[in-house]
Design a protein around this nucleic acid. Sequence first.
DNA 1: TATAAAAGTTAGATTAGTCTAACAATTATT
DNA 2: AATAATTGTTAGACTAATCTAACTTTTATA
Lengths: 229, 229
Amino acid sequence: MLSFTEENYLKALVELTVFDADSDEVGVNRLATCLEVKPATVSDMVRKLRNKSLVNYEKYGKVSLTSEGRLKGMMVIRRHRLWETFLSSKLGFSWDEVHELAEELEHIHSEKLINRLDEFLDFPEFDPHGDAIPNQKGEILLPFRRTLSEIEVGKRHRISAVRDQTEVLQYMDRIELKINQEVTIEHREAFDGLTTITYGNRTSVVSPKLTENIFVVCAECGKAKCSCK
Amino acid sequence: MLSFTEENYLKALVELTVFDADSDEVGVNRLATCLEVKPATVSDMVRKLRNKSLVNYEKYGKVSLTSEGRLKGMMVIRRHRLWETFLSSKLGFSWDEVHELAEELEHIHSEKLINRLDEFLDFPEFDPHGDAIPNQKGEILLPFRRTLSEIEVGKRHRISAVRDQTEVLQYMDRIELKINQEVTIEHREAFDGLTTITYGNRTSVVSPKLTENIFVVCAECGKAKCSCK
DNA sequence: TATAAAAGTTAGATTAGTCTAACAATTATT
DNA sequence: AATAATTGTTAGACTAATCTAACTTTTATA
Ligand SMILES: [Mn+2]
Ligand SMILES: [Mn+2]
Ligand SMILES: [Mn+2]
Ligand SMILES: [Mn+2]
């Protein structure tokens, strides 16, 4: 049985090498920053995870997940996202409150519990932030993702997901920007990336700090990578 | 914030000094047995809990809860019993499965979560084993309890609660003995305590190992201590 | 390519929770 | 009251997860 700590390392590795898909391996420093511990701590820990066949790693090399490690990490994310969905849809928590609670709940070790919860929630596909929920086998829809900071001016898009960070979510609440809402970029300032967006009957000027955390798809075809005119 | 371990010590102390109410203090050995650790471990730990003002204790003396310790312990039990109720009533787990899962869930630290859960479950008074659920203030109905092994022959009683032990619960399922069922003792063998009981349209011979774990009240007045003829 | 910077490792310390083995205090029994 | 049994404490060791400080390897740059 894995400890909370080991599970958090595997979860972070999935996030760094599967979701943020530039590379399927990652350095010790990067992992340390992400987990908010010192590189020395990570060095020790990845050796331990290698001995359990959960990661590939050798001294001074990069770290990557084995298929077993990837599955274990994916299951932590499945639990996290299902609990977030439960808290939001059944207990009425707002989308900026659920992540912190799910950080604890994700470590409850019972496959039966999580599958029953999945059923109770009617097998949701997405969590409250628009992130896909891995299935029982650890499989997940991994769409190519594009952020509001990358798309061209003038074309209608729809918000599909948001990075799960309290401040982002609370800010979006404040300007009434929601998942599934259609958004158009009116103007993007080359100098500092300040962006004017319209949505519903509103117009807002927002910074890259926000637009980099919002994922969108084409409003017409529903895809992030599309060839609609 | 208390660790899992500290919470388990407080929970055990509530069980030993509040529920099993012969005395409001307990020795190190007893506590050690109950927690399945060695007395040496308990000696260290209770000193630590005393320094946090959660227990009263001095070297070679007995251990008892302070009011703060009692409240903290009671809240662990509140969480445990609410999660058991959730697992049973919403996720369809059987009464012999819920305890083990609740042992993990009881350590999720969020008062807001547990109060929302309470509301979601419609403020249940009892968990699936008939145990009262402490309220938000840590108050609990503490009925005088009498077991099936103690009551007189011939008088009708009703099962109010069962000690939460997997084997007991599974055995009761097997002989179709349920909470709220009316039971009469037909005969109790003085030699070994073997007891013949009737309930519904059945008769069973059961041992003290079972009857000592089943709590009953008078079928007429609903009290454990009654003067009905 | 030589050197500087960045990335990564190791050694030694710390904290929480546990253990065993030896010892000390309290309580029960003759 | 003396002795035995029970109960409880202490010292020293171990594991997991973390840190700091010193050191080494790899990578980037002049
Ligand atoms: Mn989250
Ligand atoms: Mn976590
Ligand atoms: Mn229980
Ligand atoms: Mn527990």
